[in-house]
Design a protein around this nucleic acid. Structure first.
Length: 870
RNA sequence: GGGGUUGUAGCUCAGUCGGCUAGAGCGCAGCAUUCACAUUGCUGAGGUCGGGGGUUCAAGUCCCUCCAGCCCCACCA
């Protein structure tokens, strides 16, 4: 025998993968109907894998992505479509940056030890190494991706596309320079991404400061209100406010909206009291100051109310020129105490209380992060988003689950302009230069390898910023397909599917839709499938800091790649987070082994297939008809489930069919009544329908049994229906019921059933099968007038078991009660006139039939009990 | 704070158009087993479908409400 006793994945996986890769099966096949201009539905299935971050090993969530996508691709490939599945890797801007800094810090170094160029080179090398690892990990997962099309987000064509879009938008005035608050470390002299800021709880104070109302004989003065008190944790920023702000519905302050107040310590610069819903009435006094230059939220408020943003703190961490003279140039560390003293002296300080809140700090030096204004690049989103919204509302894209579509639409309707510049070295440099003599004179130029360029006798300096990674990866469907001239673009755009995690629905999916529409006028993909997270076993999120991260490669090593894939898919719905469960992976491993052993049995029976020579597929026994009928139905059901993205259900259908229909019933029955052609056929069907979920074991079996010369399972056609007699199939179903009933009676009586008698010669052909499958010694025809033993259920009453009636009496009584309960429930339903009137007639008829059947069963049972004198 | 999602057997989850006498896998209990597989087979016990209300002839499924968990995004002057 060529197949050893148990399936050992490690022995075969890498060889099988190499075989597929070498065969060219991963590349889309040429097909006339997929050519450009063919019109109508294209016979293709295309998707691009979300490029994993090339800054670490693949995590288990990516294994799930691959399990889903590869199952779909393999299924569609077998249905005869030309499939395109493109792999890639992401340079992952900020995240890689943070990962690399951690690496540096573990070596006692930091980013400030290197020049920008040195650093870029180092990160590049670091990512190259990871990219290589990722590729072998994706191979280990069995993904049938086309490696010749592998794309990295810093590859030239990606950069070129980003520049092209930037230029096009620049020309169309969709790009503009705008202000935005950034996280600035005054010690390091650089800004940080939100994820680089560490938040720490700190004990501080809440200072209550009075703002005197400007006297104008206003009603408020008449009411005796002379001042408004605010509460703040940052008194030093109160040296130049844009406004005070209250909640529009706050009864305490409603009458003050629109009034002016004087600023303490800032003579002669009255500011208005405005109303904005952003204010939380419960906090402090319910009145807050608006500091647009140093608070992101205030900046948004100021934009809404057309208030100016003033710089109060410089990049060096000192009070700026815009504060009253006495405070200018003060370092922040001293400014607070001095301002508080001045406030107290001036009589403005009303109260000081203790307060604990979280403060953003530089993750390296611990200096509090200053939110400072900086000029950034922005994209005007409204025109792009509106197009996307109407495409979605016109159902150009189907979402799985459907609720994600509404979520995306809501995001698009509320989208704000997109800040696409980032203040790090790692990424695609922004192709823009600024006139050294005129800060407002920006030009587009792609010579980003140069610090300075001369144009028309003027010197321009390169913008040191890079693009947000989502700006370039938002072009993914375009760049992977070689937009606009590539053959792939013509054949495969729009993609059939975009499959990804829900957390990047806005960041990535929405942007791809907008950019795809922007360039081509067409949506970039037809379907969106969102998967949930793979959580830790206890349902918590997997994270390195919690130490509950599970390494997919270790699981592949232990259980096999197939087991990991199928185990992750089991019982999963789209967009729902679910824990990782070793038991599911184990179950899948056992299933792979089950397939293996069915194959092993078949191999033995067929003696290396020699027995099949010249044999045609012809169902003989009722078991043959039954299994062929089942296999036809199941192939179709699995296909339907896959088309509807009910992937886990599809897998479970395969699992049940192979294990419980094929192995448990058919293989056992065929041992008595062999039909080698049927056995081989059903094994082939099983391998085919299991292939999308368990590609390695199924292909290994296919190769080892060598059904045909140089034949690959991966490109076999999906099974089509086999002709079988449904009536004979139903007969076998009845036989199964008899056998199950005998086993049940046997088990519950705890005694051996020595003999079964049957009445009528029609049952004779099944005697041996029943003896074997039910495990009964002797099955023979009953003598004339035989009334011994216990008859089976009403339907199978011509079978009688030689068994001690006392052993089953308790069980029969319980059964009796069950019948009665059912009968009364059915009777109640039929006694309801509304039910008879309003329910569909078929249903009422069905209920009547059920009642009749239940009553027959009951009568039968009572007869048995009477006969047995129970 | 905004958004999303989940609650069904001891555990993990299915349950599509409302027709349910609510399913599966694991676990558990009992039994079996030279004959492909102990990564096995057979049989069984386990449920007021989170609580309350409503719509309907009929609700696990639709609506309202409450409770509990989890996730994403944004963050507190």
């Amino acid at each position: 025998m060529r197949l050893p006793k148990a399936y050992e994945p490690k022995k075969y996986e890498s060889g099988i993968y190499a075989l597929w890769e070498k065969s060219g099966a991963f590349a889309p096949k040429e097909h006339p109907s997929t050519a450009l201009g063919a019109g109508g539905a294209k016979d293709v299935y295309s998707l691009v894998a979300p490029p994993p971050n090339a800054n670490a090993d693949l995590h288990i969530g990516y294994a799930l992505t691959m399990a889903i996508e590869d199952a779909l691709v393999r299924y569609h490939r077998m249905t005869g479509k030309s499939t395109l599945f493109v792999p890639g890797a992401d340079h992952a801007g900020f995240e890689t940056w943070v990962v690399y800094e951690k690496k540096l810090s573990s070596e006692g170094k930091s980013r400030f030890d290197f020049s920008r160029e040195e650093l870029y080179k180092q990160v590049w090398d670091f990512v190259e190494l990871n990219k290589h690892n990722l590729q072998s990990q994706i191979r280990a997962m069995g993904a049938s991706v086309d490696w010749s099309r592998f794309l990295y987000t810093l590859d030239n064509k990606v950069v070129a596309q980003a520049y092209d879009t930037f230029k096009k938008m620049w020309d169309e005035e969709l790009i503009y320079r705008g202000q935005r608050i950034v996280n600035y470390c005054t010690f390091h002299g650089t800004s940080f991404a939100d994820i680089e800021v560490v938040h720490e709880q700190e004990d501080t104070k809440l200072w209550h400061i009075a703002y005197p109302l400007v006297e104008q004989g206003s009603p408020s003065t008449e009411l005796g209100v002379k001042e408004v008190v605010i509460a703040t944790t940052r008194p030093e920023t109160k040296l130049g406010q844009a406004a005070l702000m209250v909640h529009p519905d706050d009864e305490r302050y409603k009458h003050l909206i629109g009034k002016l107040v004087n600023q303490p310590l800032v003579p002669g610069s009255p500011i208005p009291i405005i109303a904005d819903e952003y204010v939380e009435r419960e906090f402090g006094t319910g009145v807050v100051t608006v500091t647009p230059g140093h608070d992101p939220n205030d900046f948004e408020v100021a934009k809404r109310h057309n208030l100016p943003a003033t710089e109060l703190i410089t990049t060096e961490g000192k009070m700026s020129e815009n504060v009253p003279e006495t405070f200018r140039g003060l370092p922040l560390t001293e400014a607070r105490d001095i301002v508080v003293q001045a406030l107290e002296k001036g009589g403005y300080l009303r109260k000081v209380e203790g307060y604990t809140h979280s403060i953003g700090k530089c993750y390296r030096c611990g200096t509090p992060i200053e939110p400072l204004l900086r000029e950034q690049w922005f994209i005007k989103m409204r025109p792009l988003a509106d197009k996307a919204t109407s495409a979605l509302k016109a159902n150009k894209i189907r979402f799985y689950p459907a609720s994600k579509k509404d979520q995306t639409i809501r995001y698009l309707e509320e989208v704000r302009d997109w800040n696409i510049s980032r203040q790090i070295a790692w990424g695609i440099p922004i192709p823009a230069f600024v006139n050294t003599a005129d800060e407002s004179d920006w030009i587009f130029d792609t010579r980003v390898d140069r610090e300075e360029i001369d144009v028309d006798g003027k010197t321009y300096k390169r913008d040191p910023d890079v693009f947000d990674t989502w700006f370039s990866s938002g072009h993914w469907p375009l760049v992977t397909l070689d937009y606009p001239e590539g053959e792939d673009f013509k054949r495969f755009y729009p993609l059939s599917l975009m499959e990804t995690g829900g957390e990047i629905l806005y960041q990535w999916v929405a942007r791809m839709i907008m950019l795809g529409l922007y360039h081509t006028g067409e949506v970039p993909f037809k379907d969106v499938y969102i998967h949930g997270y793979v959580m830790a076993e206890d349902g918590a999120k997997m994270s390195k800091s919690l130490g509950n991260v599970v390494d997919p490669l270790k699981l592949i090593d232990e259980y096999g790649s197939d087991a990991l894939r199928a185990g992750l898919l089991t019982g999963r719905r789209p967009a729902v987070n679910q824990g990782y469960h070793p038991a599911k992976i184990k179950a899948a491993r056992n299933f792979a082994n089950k397939l293996w052993n069915i194959a092993r049995y078949t191999e033995g029976v067929l003696e290396g297939r020699t027995l099949l020579q010249g044999a045609t597929l012809q169902a003989e026994t009722i078991a043959d008809h039954w299994i062929l009928n089942k296999s036809s139905i199941i192939s179709e059901e699995v296909a339907k489930a896959m088309e509807a993205y009910r992937i886990s259900e599809a897998y479970e259908l395969v699992y049940y069919f192979v294990w419980h229909d094929f192995a448990d019933w058919y293989v056992e029955a065929s041992k008595l009544q062999p039909n080698n052609a049927v056995l081989a056929n059903v094994l082939e069907t099983s391998l085919k329908i299991a292939h999308p979920f368990l590609p390695f074991v199924t292909e290994t079996i296919w190769q080892t049994l060598a059904w045909e010369q140089d034949s690959l399972l991966i490109i076999q056609p999906w099974p089509t229906a086999v002709v079988a007699d449904a009536g004979k199939a139903a007969e076998f179903e009845k036989l199964k019921n008899i056998i199950t009933e005998i086993r049940w009676l046997k088990a519950l009586s705890g005694t051996k059933v020595e003999r079964i008698h049957y009445q009528g010669s029609a049952n004779a052909p099944y005697a041996d099968l029943i003896a074997k499958l039910a495990g009964v010694g002797q099955v023979s025809q009953a003598p004339e007038g035989y009334a011994g033993g216990v008859p089976l259920s009403a339907e199978n009453a011509d079978w009688r078991l030689d068994i001690d009636p006392a052993a089953v009496s308790e069980r029969l009584a319980a059964k009796h009660a069950e019948h009665n309960a059912l009968i009364s429930s059915l009777q109640n339903r039929l006694a309801n006139q509304d039910y008879l009137d309003k329910a569909p007639t078929e249903l009422v008829e069905e209920t009547k039939a059920q009642l009749a059947e239940a009553q027959t069963n009951l009568t039968h049972l009572e007869n048995i009990q009477k006969t047995l004198k129970l």
